[in-house]
Design a protein around this nucleic acid. Structure first.
Lengths: 196, 196
DNA sequence: GTCTATAGGCAGATAGAC
DNA sequence: GTCTATCTGCCTATAGAC
C-alpha cells in the first residue's frame, strides 16, 4: 500500500521540469542552458545531470509531460462541456492561459527550432500536433453533425487550420506583449465556423 | 560617374548575408554560429567579424535586408496586380516560396526567439510585422470598397489575423515538410474573406 | 542525491601580420 | 580584406567524494 502524502512532494525532477519548461517556452530550446536551471533552483549543474543525463533527455521529458497535461485538459473539456462551439472556446482558453504567462506553446516554440532538435524530440512534437488536430477534428465533426458549426471541406483540414492559426496568433502576439491581439485573432478564426 | 559593372559583384558581405539568412530561417538565430558561415564560405571567422563586428550587427543587417526585399515585393504586387483578392493570393505566394525553400519566415522565426534577441533586432521584427499588417489592411480596405472582399470588423484587425494565420501555417507545416498543408490553411484563411 | 572539480569543446570576439 | 593565433567565457557532460 502506498504511503499517503499530506503535502505535494514536488520532487527535484519535477521542479527541474517546471523551470526548464518555462525557459523553453520563453527562450527556446537553444536559448537556455543547464546553468540557467541550476541558478534558478540553487543546485549545481552536476545534480541536474543526475536527474536528466543529457539535455536531449530533458527535452523529451518536457514534451511528454506537456503533452500528457494537454491531453488531460482536452479530456476535461470533453467531460464538462457538451456544446462543440463551447469546446472550441475552451480550447482557445488553454492557449490564452499560456500566452498570459508570456509563454509560447511549448511545441509551437519547438516547431520553430525543429531542424536543430534531437531526433526523438522531433517525433514528440509531431505527435503533439497530431493529437491536437485529431481532437479538434472530432469536435468539428460533432458540431457539423448537430448543425451548430459550419465549414467547407473535411473536419481534419479545418482542424489543421485552427491549430496553425492559433499557434501563429501566439507567435506574433507575444513580441507585442498584447494578449488582446491574440484574442482578437482567435475570435476571428472561430467566427469563420459560424452556422449560416 | 559610377563604373559600370557587367557581372553582379556579389560582395563578401552579400554572401555572408545570404548564408546567414538561410541559417536563421532554418535553424534560428540561436541555432547557428559564425563558424557555420565561415565553413560554408570557406573563409575564417575573423574575416566575418571584419564585415559584421558582432552577431547582433549581423542580425540587424539580416532583418533590414529582408524587410527591404519584402517591401519591394509588395510594391511589385501593387504595381502589377489590380484586384484586391489577387493581391492577397500573390501575398500568400511570397510565403509559399519561402516555405518551398524549407525555410520559415525570417521574422516569424525571430518572433519565437524574441525574448533572447538584442534590443535593436526586436524593434526591427516589430516594424516588419507592422509593415505587413499595414499593407494587408490597405488591400482589405480596397477590396471592401469595391465589394470584392467581405469581412467583419476593421481592416487592420482582419489584416492581423491573416498575418498571424499565415505565420502559424508556416510554423506548423515545416516540421511535416508538407507544402500542401500550408497551402490548404492559407486558402482557407483567404476563403473566409468571401463576398456574400 | 548533491556536491567539487574538471574535462573537452565551441561560442563570440580581438590583435596584429600580410 | 583575409589570415593566424589567441583570449575569455560558457556549453554539455563526467568522475568521484560525501
Amino acid at each position: 500500500m502506498a504511503v499517503t502524502q499530506t503535502q505535494a512532494p514536488t520532487s527535484t525532477a519535477q521542479r527541474i521540469l517546471d523551470v526548464a519548461e518555462q525557459l523553453v517556452q520563453s527562450r527556446g530550446y537553444n536559448g537556455f542552458s543547464y546553468a540557467d536551471i541550476a541558478g534558478e533552483l540553487a543546485i549545481t549543474k552536476a545534480s541536474l545531470h543526475y536527474h536528466f543525463a543529457s539535455k536531449a533527455e530533458l527535452g523529451e521529458a518536457l514534451i511528454e509531460r506537456y503533452s500528457a497535461r494537454f491531453t488531460e485538459a482536452l479530456e476535461r473539456i470533453d467531460s464538462t462541456i457538451p456544446a462543440a462551439r463551447a469546446k472550441l472556446d475552451a480550447y482557445v482558453g488553454l492557449y490564452t492561459d499560456v500566452l498570459r504567462g508570456e509563454r509560447m506553446c511549448l511545441c509551437g516554440m519547438l516547431a520553430a527550432e525543429y531542424q536543430t532538435l534531437p531526433q526523438p524530440m522531433r517525433g514528440s512534437v509531431i505527435r503533439f500536433f497530431d493529437g491536437n488536430v485529431a481532437w479538434l477534428a472530432s469536435v468539428l465533426a460533432d458540431g457539423q453533425s448537430d448543425g451548430t458549426l459550419s465549414f467547407d471541406g473535411a473536419p481534419n483540414d479545418a482542424a489543421q487550420t485552427i491549430l496553425s492559426s492559433l499557434q501563429g496568433a501566439m507567435l506574433v502576439a507575444r513580441p507585442y506583449g498584447d494578449l488582446a491581439r491574440f484574442q482578437a485573432a482567435a475570435a476571428r478564426t472561430l467566427a469563420s465556423l459560424k452556422t449560416p
